[in-house]
């Protein structure tokens, strides 16, 4: 979906981000040295940069000054959780600021939001006979339009954005129906059943035991 540059000197973290982004369909490049960042941007022309603050040779805030004129969206990722650092990060022109430790879903959601803002978010999702035009709210199965309710479509969008990642019923409920909604998680099950049937995704939308649902596209 998008080409993302990960600038992080801790291999464990860089790999973690890369693996998760790969799951949801992004392409990634990893860099662990502040001095190599600008060259990597030139070479890969990323849609988004995930930038650690503490880096060998050149720190993230410094790099941000060079990246800002390029207009590439940047999300800071750092262990510094002081308010001053956050303000400094956001003032320098970053689009978001994520503090370690972070949850994967949070990272992916934030990346999604930033990509949407920059409209590099791909608007068409295809899987076998299924085509989802995300911007137009149109779903085609075997080139025939399928009618989905607003909730069903939201649910589908969410599953696509987090493809290959399981989402808990609670998470889905809060994201689709809103946090205040105190309904049964059964509601989710009903809607998932309908989606599976309407789009013949019985094999694709998996029930993950004790977790929730996952759209598998691998």
């Amino acid at each position: 979906m998008a080409n993302i540059l990960i600038v992080e000197d801790e291999m464990a973290i860089a790999d973690l981000i890369a693996m998760n982004l790969k799951l949801v369909g992004h392409a990634t490049t990893q860099i662990d040295d502040g001095n190599e960042v600008m060259a990597a941007i030139q070479a890969t022309t990323p849609d988004l940069i995930i930038l650690d603050v503490m880096l060998p040779n050149k720190d993230g805030f410094e790099l941000m000054k060079e990246i800002a004129p390029l207009g590439v969206p940047v999300i800071f990722l750092t262990a510094k959780d002081q308010l001053d650092d956050k303000i400094m990060g956001l003032r320098s022109g970053a689009d978001d600021y994520i503090v370690k430790p972070f949850a994967i879903i949070e990272l992916i959601t934030r990346i999604e939001t930033v990509l949407k803002r920059y409209q590099v978010h791909s608007s068409i999702f295809r899987l076998e006979q299924l085509e989802v035009r995300l911007d137009e709210h149109v779903v085609l199965l075997n080139d025939e339009q399928v009618d989905l309710t607003t909730k069903e479509f939201s649910l589908l969008t969410l599953l696509i954005a987090n493809q290959n990642l399981a989402l808990s019923r609670e998470k889905l409920l809060s994201l689709v129906w809103g946090v205040e909604f105190m309904g049964e998680t059964r509601t989710i099950d009903v809607h998932i059943q309908k989606l599976r049937k309407k789009l013949s995704l019985e094999d694709r939308i998996k029930t993950v035991y004790k977790v929730g649902y996952r759209l598998e596209v691998r």
Partner: peptide, 28 residues
Amino acid sequence: MRTPITAIMGYGEFLKYANYSEEERIKA
């Protein structure tokens, strides 16, 4: 402590939620 904690938490979550390959599972 944040780095190892982030990594352990992250890979734990990965193993719980992701539709991973065998290679990814071992790496995590």
